[in-house]
Structures are given as structure tokens and as C-alpha cells.
Nucleic acid binder design. Structure first.
Lengths: 110, 110
DNA sequence: CAAAATAATTGTAATATTGCGATTAAACGA
DNA sequence: TCGTTTAATCGCAATATTACAATTATTTTG
């Protein structure tokens, strides 16, 4: 199938998995880390930094942009990308509800 | 291709994306949330709780178990699953280094 | 204006993921 | 022991993801 049965799950569960999926490829993790380090940078810089072809980087950037985690501004011939702080904060809140669940003392197996 | 070029990235980036990938499906999110709520439960209970077929749940459980995030103990005819607290804590630490990066004030676009 | 630089888009191939029916294996109960 | 319950595994179909060459669109520069 290859198609997740989204309708079976809560909005929260779908939101968590959607964000997690965005981080589910090392290239997207690397892109985001690089944007954090430099505040902003062009697509071409990311192509040089990471060893993937330009269309591949462009595709990963598109996914992150569609999710709203990054913003892109045309700067002459190049495009300047950066983190979208508001969305990043929102994402962190969503992930925190999942990651910071309480580990009960009797959580160990049976 | 469908094959991530793992060798291009740091160990940290690959670790982050591997954990994130595990959370990149709502069924696995739901399974983990349910295990947190009940401390431990059988595969069959998860099949009832979530609306997916038994082989599908079994497959998702296998992925989580391979990553080490959950443990499974045979309890007679059924199998008791629970969170692996040590691995969960380790995963949280890895994800925190990524999620808690500093949002620089001048992070806004160009 | 023509050539160069930059990045998006298109198209395609290879591989991965998701889901489930059918089957199998193991443990339990009458 | 035989049927039942429980869950793993196998095999398959449908879809998604990853990667890139080729192309296109836009802007800059000479």
C-alpha cells in the first residue's frame, strides 16, 4: 500500500508523525542544522555543504518549506533560506508532548 | 532511488533521522502512547486499540523493537510489550540536541 | 543583447514503506 | 491430544521516497 491510514489516528498523532517524518532523512536534518548555524543561506551553499545534487537539495528544501519549518526569499539570482522561528517553536511544543511522557516506575516489562 | 546516502552525513545526523523515522508513522506514535499509558500490553490489545490488522501492528512493533525503544516478553500465548526506559532516555537526549538549537534573533530571512 | 549563474521543475529509475491475506509456530485449555 | 488463541512471518500489491539528469525560468554580468 505505502499509504498511512491517517483517519485511524488523532490529530495529535498525525501532527507528531508529520513533523517526525520531516526529520526522518539525514539531509533534512543537515539542512536545518546548517540554517541554525548560519542564520540564513542560499540553496547553492547547501548543495556544497551537503554532498547531494542540486535538484535533490531543492526537493528537500521544498518539503521543509511546505511544512512551514523554513522560509525562502528570492535574493537576486539566488534564494535565501532560513528557519521559521514561529513554526519551529510550535513544532517543538507538539514533539514535547510526545517525547516528554512520564516514564512510570513500573514501566519495565511484565 | 529510495535509498538515503547515509555516508554523506554525521553519525549524529543519522541517529536523529533514524529515531525520527520511527516516529514518522502515526501507528507507531499511537503504539508508544498506549504503552506509556498502560505500562505494558499485549500485541492483541494494540490491534484492538488501533484499527490496523494484526500483521500490520506486528510489523510496526518489530521496527520499534529493532530500534530498542520497546521490549517484548513472551507471556504464555501472548507477548507483553513495554517501553524500554533506558533507550527512551537516550533517544530523548539525541533528539534534544537537535530540537533545542538556539533560535538566533537575526534568524529571520535575509 | 548574449552568456553565465542560480535554483525550480520535470521525468524517470531504484528502492522503501505500508497494509493485509494466508500461513505458520507456539502455548494453552478442555 | 485436539481445537483454540495469540502473534510472528511470508508474499504480494499499492504507494511513497530518494536521487539525479535534463530542462526551464529568472536574474546578473559582460
Amino acid at each position: 500500500m505505502g499509504l498511512a491510514k491517517v483517519e485511524l489516528f488523532t490529530e495529535d498523532q498525525n501532527a507528531i508523525s508529520t513533523f517526525a517524518k520531516a526529520f526522518g532523512h539525514p539531509a533534512r536534518v543537515a539542512i536545518l542544522q546548517h540554517l541554525f548555524k548560519l542564520n540564513a543561506c542560499a540553496c547553492g551553499d547547501l548543495v556544497n555543504e551537503i554532498g547531494l545534487a542540486q535538484p535533490t537539495i531543492s526537493q528537500h528544501l521544498k518539503e521543509l518549506k511546505n511544512l512551514g519549518l523554513i522560509k525562502g526569499n528570492v535574493e537576486g539570482a539566488s534564494v535565501c533560506y532560513c528557519i521559521n522561528p514561529e513554526k519551529w517553536v510550535q513544532m517543538k511544543a507538539v514533539m514535547a508532548t510526545f517525547l516528554n511522557q512520564d516514564l512510570n516506575d513500573n514501566a519495565n516489562c511484565c
